[in-house]
Amino acid sequence: MNGFFDIPSDLQHSYGGLIAVHMQEALVPVLAGLLLALPVGLLCVRHGWLYAPLLWTSTVLYAIPSIAFFVVLIDYTGLTQLTVMIPLCLYSLVVLVPAVVDGIRSVPEETNAAASAMGIGLARRYLQVQLPIAVPAITAGLRVAVASSISLVSVGALIGNQGGLGNLLTTAQLYGRPRLAVSSVVTTAVLAIVIDALLVLLRRVLTPWQPPSGRAAGRSGATPADPAAHTAEGAS
């Protein structure tokens, strides 16, 4: 393991610095995507006809390879982190919008009716009634989006120095040092697993009424424990 944390100086970052850059480039876009998906998802539930064209558009964007996206964006945003973050944000939408939509749709009609009967307005109903119930579906989507975002940041290394830990990969090829590639892959995977675990923890904190493991309600059949588990995966 000696040398695992030694980074060639031309990367201009320490091991920790690369991790920080990587996390920033991976998580900020998903966060932005979530902030976008919350209102957009609500709109899609309200106006059903919006949903299909929106899904198609995001699927086409999703099909454009990240590297091509980066290269085209260089013209507009230069060799900055923004060039990496914009495509990642768009990619996250393809998972997050369906997750939010499914989450809101998983709210039982009676619950909505009860909220209205109690005189809760539409905005408050969305924020205080529907969103908390939608948390399991949304976190399921977030887990997929974050994992893919963390993996995709590495591709940014191909357009220069914008790949976070992915820069180790291009450097490894340049100098013929496989150990740097191992270091990049292992570190990225560990980061993804840690963030994933944190998201699971967050869901448990936010939904104390749910059984700790998502499958307990599964046998009852009529109410699948995790309505977004499949839709988030089959997003496109």
């Binding site: 994992a147 496989p178 990049s184 995977a189 697993i193």
Partner: peptide
């Protein structure tokens, strides 16, 4: 599935190319 998703695709490619 979470483990498989955590493996970075591009990194895996470079690593496998080395190996």
């Amino acid at each position: 599935a979470a483990g498989a998703r955590a493996l970075p695709t591009f990194g895996l490619l470079v690593l496998m190319f080395f190996w």
